[in-house]
Amino acid sequence: MDLTRLRLLVELRRLGTMTAVSEVTGMGTSAVSKHLAVLEREAGVRLLAPDGRRVRLTPAGRRLAEHAADILGRVEAARAEMAGEGPPVGRIDLVTFVSMTVPVVLPAMERLRQEHPGIEVRLIEHEPDQTLDLLLGGEADLGLVYEYSLVPRRIPEGITLSPVGSEPLFLAQSSAGGPSRATMTRERLRALADASWIANSRGSDEDELVRRMCASAGFRPRIRHRIDTLEAVSAVVAAGWGVGLLPKLAATPRRRGVVHTPLGELAGVRRIYLASRTGAWAWRPLRAVAHRIRLAARGVLDPLEEDPHSGDGAVVRR
C-alpha cells in the first residue's frame, strides 16, 4: 500500500471531510478521492461510505486508519534514525570467536549498554568460515573474523572488512623440557620434528599455517590431535601429549605445566577484523557496536600496521 494514500486516509479520519484533507495536503479534492478509491481496491474492502454530501469511514476504514497511523509513525522513526536523529536503536546479532569474547567483546558491550541502552546485542560463537556464511545469509549482522598473515583468507564478494588489530603467535609446549621465553628459531623448531601436533577441527587455515611454519624448518608436522576447546588444548600440552600453536589471547592466562614460546616471523601474526555485508555499515546501531569493539581492542591487541586488504586501514569493500 502506498504511504501517500495511507496518509490521506489518516487525515480523513482526523479532519472528517475530503475538502479539509485537500486543504492541508495541497492536493485537489478530486485527486484525494481517486487516491482513496485506489486504496480501497488495494485493501479489498469498503473503506468509505456515503453520508449525505460527504463520506464517512466504514469500520474497516477506521481500522485501516489506525494501522496506517502506526505504519506512518514507524516510517518517520526509521527515517529519523537513519538520518542520525535521536539515539540508535535496534538488535545486532554479533558473531565472535572464543578468545575475543572475554577480553574484548564483553567489556565493549558493557560500555555500549551504558551509552546506548536502545541497542540489543545477541552473541553467537563461531569460527570465521561459519561467520562469513551467516553474514552472507543474513543470519547475522556483524562478525569478528581472523586470518593468519602467512595464510590470508579469501573474503567473499559482498562482505566488507574493518581492521581491529593483530596478535603474535606462540608455541604451547610442556614445561617439562624447561622454560623458554626466547623467540623460536628454525633450529629449535626442527627438534620438534617427531612431536605430535594439535590443531582444531573447524578449519584448514591452522593446518596450513603449521605446515608452512614447519616446512621452513625442514620437516612435515604430524597433526595427531583435533581439539577445539582452548582449555583442553592446554591440558593436553601440559600432559606432554603434544604441542600446539596459540595466538596471544588464547595463551592467556597461562596454565601450569605449559610454556608459551614466541614464534616471531616463523608464524607471523593473527589479524583480526570486523566483517559485515557491504551495505550494512550505514546502520547506526551496527557502527556503534563496531566502534566500541575497536576501542576495547586497543588495550588488548597490537595495531594492524600493514593490512593486505587495505593500504590505508579504511573499511574495505568486497
Rank of each mutant, 00 (worst) to 15 (best):
136 L>K: 14
136 L>E: 14
138 G>N: 06
140 A>K: 13
143 G>E: 04
147 E>Y: 07
148 Y>K: 07
149 S>R: 12
151 V>T: 06
156 P>E: 01
157 E>V: 15
158 G>Y: 02
160 T>S: 15
161 L>T: 07
165 G>N: 00
166 S>H: 11
169 L>M: 08
169 L>G: 01
170 F>E: 08
171 L>A: 04
171 L>M: 08
172 A>Q: 05
173 Q>T: 15
178 G>M: 03
181 R>K: 11
183 T>F: 01
184 M>Y: 04
187 E>G: 06
188 R>N: 12
188 R>W: 09
189 L>N: 06
190 R>Q: 13
190 R>K: 14
192 L>C: 10
192 L>H: 14
193 A>D: 09
193 A>G: 07
193 A>C: 07
194 D>W: 10
194 D>T: 14
197 W>I: 03
198 I>A: 07
198 I>M: 04
198 I>Q: 06
201 S>P: 04
202 R>P: 00
203 G>T: 09
203 G>W: 10
204 S>W: 13
207 D>N: 01
213 M>S: 00
213 M>I: 00
214 C>F: 00
215 A>S: 04
218 G>L: 00
218 G>S: 05
220 R>F: 07
222 R>Q: 13
229 T>P: 13
234 S>Q: 13
234 S>F: 09
236 V>D: 05
237 V>A: 02
246 L>P: 09
253 P>L: 00
254 R>D: 05
255 R>W: 09
258 V>E: 10
260 H>T: 12
261 T>Q: 11
264 G>Y: 04
267 A>C: 09
